[in-house]
Each structure stands twice: as structure tokens, then as C-alpha cells.
Amino acid sequence: MANLTVNIGKLKLKNPVMVASGTFGYAEEFKDFIDLKKLGAIVTKTITLKPRKGNPGPRTCETPAGMLNSIGLENPGIEGFIAEKLPILKKIGVPAIISIASEGEAGEFVELSRRLDKIKEVSAIELNISCPNIRDKSRLISQDAQATYELVRSVRKVTQKTLITKLSPNVTSIVEIAKAAQAGGSDALSLINTLTGMSIDVRRRRPKIASIVAGLSGPAIKPVAVRMCWEVYKAVDLPIIGMGGIMNTEDALEFLIAGASAVSVGTGNFINPKASVEIIAGLKNYMTKNRINDIKNIVGSLKT
């Protein structure tokens, strides 16, 4: 029997397949299509301290083998989340990883983490310091090693929960930022958030997304994401949750072989709501066929 269990910090997952923040709502949206209990973990849409209305539309557009989005962290705020969404996640019974962010104030991350630390059903916290769709796109925390270090460190002081830091690919050296997150006390890394991009309606000479610059996701970004996982795997001793354009089992395997301990399906959920559970079955098949009894033996197994 193939062993698919993986550890991400203190978190033990029955399999390495999760769903990426912002692509799975708060899970209830997918209950008609898959058995949610099969998932390794569920990462929620990002929560902020206060409710946010998000950005004006159009918020999404299709691009070659990908899509752009600028949702702008629309969410019901921490209180709304606890009242309306957490009970649903609790019922599903799969580890719930709560993604959090703030518009500017780093202090918001601390406040949010302090609240979440007291909630038993919160399995881990993902620090979304890399969302490109906030007002000041020019200075994301995850684009500055020192700021990343300080933020993770201040959150680390208020919670014992597993801390996952989600990094931006829009940097010169992701390894440098990953090291800063590790030094700050992060237990794991999520790689990668969206790449910033633009798309233009040439007939109207207008941006296809109202906020002009948006985040690119989908198969188009997969090679970039795999490369970043591999670079970080070689340089940093933290478990990596790999994501970026995973559509099927083969994509997931690429990330695992490059060094990710787990994977997240993101945009793939939009096209095939069953993608995540199909990948879980696909990984089992792959292991059986190749006589691999522990998924950990695949992680970082790239031959060079």
C-alpha cells in the first residue's frame, strides 16, 4: 500500500494534494463535484481583518494557456469567516489552512494570527505576503527579504500553529526571500503566487482587467513555478508546497520531483473541479506502477 502521507511543519497530511488559496472559495463551492474529505488539505481564500469588497471588474480574463485575475482579496473579514465559513470547514474535517493578508500594515498579520491561534480547527496559517492585487503593487512584503524576515518573525511570536509563507515569483532571487522566511521562523513555503501580467484589448486600446496589472496563473506559468521550487529546494531546508499551473498528475509529479513535499491545485479547479482528487488517484497509480512505497521518495528525486 503506497504511503502518501507528508508532513508540513507540525501538520500531518494523509496525502500531498491540496487546493490553492483563492481558487477553492471556502470549499463548499466544490461539494457537488468531489468528496472533499479526500483532499490532503484545504487552503482558504485569503482573509483580512476587516471585510473587503475587492477590486472593480472586469476581474478576470483568459490568456494563452492561462488567465489573469485581479480579485483584490474580496473576503468577509475574520469575524465573518469565523461565523460563516469556519463551521463548514470544520464539518468537512480536512486540515484547514487559513490564508491571511493585509493591505499595508504588517501588524494586521499579527492580529489575525493571534485570533486564529486560539481556534482548534485551524490547522495552519498561510501568510499571503505576495498578492499582487493590492493597492500598492510596487512593494509587496515578499519582494523584500528584510521585510519578509521581520513579518514572519513577528507572527511566529504569537502562534504555535504551522506557519506557511507564500512567496511571489516577481523577484530577482526567490531563494533569498525563502531564506529570509526560514530565518523568521516559517515552517514551510508555498511556491508560487501569480506572476504579474497585463492583457490589452487592442480594438478599444484598454486593459482587459480593470486594475490593469493582474496576476497570471494556469499552465502558462508552470515551468517558472517548477524552476523556483527546484532552486529553493536546493538552498533551503523547509518543506515546499508547489503550485502554479497544475492540471493533472504529471504536472503534480514535476513539482514533487523538483523538490516540493506537497502540491496545490489552483486554476485547474476552475477548469476541472475534480482535478485535485484525480491527482490523488493518479499519484497512487504512479507509485504502484513504479513500485514506490513512500511518496517522500519522489520528493526532490530529480536526476541531474
Partner: peptide, 22 residues
């Protein structure tokens, strides 16, 4: 009608502003 990415309520791409919120 709005641009949709998922069509099942997950992505929040197609929201409209209403008197009861987005």
C-alpha cells in the same frame, strides 16, 4: 452577464455590486 473564470462561485471574478454587498 459577467466575465467568469470558474462559474461555480469560487473565484469571485464575476461579482456585481448590490445593496446587500458584492
Amino acid at each position: 452577464e459577467e466575465h467568469m473564470a470558474c462559474g461555480i462561485g469560487a473565484c469571485l471574478g464575476c461579482v456585481v455590486n448590490t445593496k446587500k454587498g458584492m
